[in-house]
Design a protein around this nucleic acid. Structure first.
Lengths: 212, 212
DNA sequence: CTCGTGAACTTACGGGCGTTAGCTTATGTC
DNA sequence: GACATAAGCTAACGCCCGTAAGTTCACGAG
């Protein structure tokens, strides 16, 4: 079922000074196109415009080119992911082990609930080699730092509480833990059905965090 | 540098009965386009034809559509990966620990040497939702089974030799190990530079195989 | 030598894309 | 009520894509 609504009716123009609203609508439309299940090829400048109900060139005052729409989407979703993780951390029981599992499972849940978003967030193909686009390396490097920092913090708490055999390299251990989570999250996002037991997630966490 | 050779000169026609040769040439051209560093969007039916030096419609006798070229590429590369792993296994010292590290590192090396290939092999976006294409679910499910089986075998050897705390679920443990490897391999294939220590790979293997 | 046929070609259609240039119209101030 | 301007529109450009239809040409069997 391809829902190409086309949206006739020329759209109620935004009030003076509220032109910026359109920027948000554009990002949301791009996310919606992703969620609808097609791959990221479905997110073109024109398809986004159609979804919002505006003419294609009306995007240019808000985004310099198509890749920068994608960058905005990824940045927004990274922020969203960070919020989800923080919330999970705060709602968890105050002991380090519970916090670690809460955060890691929240991560996995996010990926499961929004596979398409997860794919472009970490799939790395939305940047056509960083030539010809307005995207800088700094833009890319800063992605996901906040979320990762939270993971480091929670794993660090486990070491401090003595429930994990911390090596002398907390950062490296955190990277390894994240890579495991990412492997599972990505694979789930990509294939229809994952083989393996249901508790793979917990096994990964336990093994990679070196929980006692 | 975009090498669009265009290749005038109408190509030496294949001998009778050797039409199948072209099929291989098409797959190799597609792989070459990938390796040249563009993303998979660079692999279009027409660009492949240009690379081979044939007219675009000449592909149809060999592949029913563009996605099936991609499927053939992935199948070929999966076979190639399996060979690489088997070779690494056979050339390793005969003890289980050495075999495990040899196979896992060979996996990681493959991904590092051919990041673009790895991306489409496991990136899962080359199938436009399996509608409108000639690709079946069986095609997809059978991918990579041979390579994974080898991993199960090698990890099993570790448990048998008593150098790994095997749980009662060898298959599940193997999935977890593979997911860790995949997370690292994929991330390396996707970003310019991976943060974290150089020995993340070994850490992942040690932790996920539960080596003593 | 003929001639069927497999292998690949030429031409062409219709469609989607990103982007540029210039126009229209609602808004809210004076 | 006039009018400056922000907000968005229409039209059009050139490009590349996938695919259909019909054509040419060399191989090799008879």
């Amino acid at each position: 079922m391809v829902t190409t609504v086309t949206n006739t009716e020329p759209r109620r123009r935004n009030r003076r000074g509220e032109g910026g609203k359109l920027r948000e609508e554009i990002i949301e439309a791009a996310v919606a196109l992703l969620d609808e299940g097609g791959d990221e090829r479905a997110v073109t400048l024109r398809s986004v415009a159609r979804k919002v109900g505006i003419a294609a060139p009306s995007i240019y005052p808000h985004f310099s080119d198509q890749p920068s729409i994608m960058l905005a989407v990824v940045q927004r979703e990274m922020d969203s992911l960070t919020s989800v993780l923080r919330e999970a951390d705060e709602n968890a029981a105050p002991d380090a082990r519970a916090r670690l599992f809460a955060v890691c499972n929240a991560y996995l849940d996010f990926a499961r609930q929004h596979p398409q978003r997860y794919r472009i967030m970490f799939g790395g193909l939305w940047t056509p080699s960083t030539e010809d686009t307005s995207i800088t390396d700094a833009d890319l490097d800063s992605l996901g730092v906040a979320a990762f920092t939270l993971l480091v913090e929670v794993l660090g708490a486990c070491v401090e509480e003595g429930i994990a055999h911390g090596s002398d390299d907390l950062f490296g251990d955190s990277v390894a833990l994240w890579l495991g989570l990412h492997g599972l999250a990505h694979q789930r996002a990509v294939v229809r059905k994952m083989p393996g037991p249901d508790d793979v997630g917990d096994r990964l966490i336990t093994a990679l965090a070196h929980l006692k």
